[in-house]
Amino acid sequence: MSEVFIQLAFRTSIIAFIVNIAIAMYGVYTRPSLIKKFICLIMFTDAINLFALFIGFRVVNNTYPKPPVLIREPVSPGELEEFKYIAVDPLPQALVLTAIVISLAVFMFVIGLILVYYEHYGTTSIKAMRSGGVEEVFE
């Protein structure tokens, strides 16, 4: 039962990842609103970050993964071997943490740019930029 559940959860996550990427790309390249583009960019990076976290998880012999921490010492060689196969790899988490921090800085900068754009054109729609002047655009 648990194996079926794990498989279902895994497949759902992969499908969700692909759907999220597709929606985000559609939004970034087709939506005229800069705010919507911005939200889609966040979706895009978060979907990739979530996928990166999945890389660290392994399901071996129908057992649930464990945190990568040894809480009891000394550890027997058998336990250490089991830990090696079951524990979640912490490196992808460290990579994602770094990527999130960098993304935060870049997104703060982009939102600043959108604000300045709004000051210039009075709207956050890129249609205003294409028409070369300020106009009311309702999205």
Binding site: F44, I55, V110
Partner: peptide, 23 residues
């Protein structure tokens, strides 16, 4: 501002794809 926005938005997509490839 528009040029920087274009650069930043396509740049974020590109670097995220690179991160995906790294993973």
């Amino acid at each position: 501002i528009v040029a920087s926005l274009r650069y930043a938005m396509t740049g974020i997509v590109a670097t995220s794809i690179y991160f995906f490839a790294v993973v």
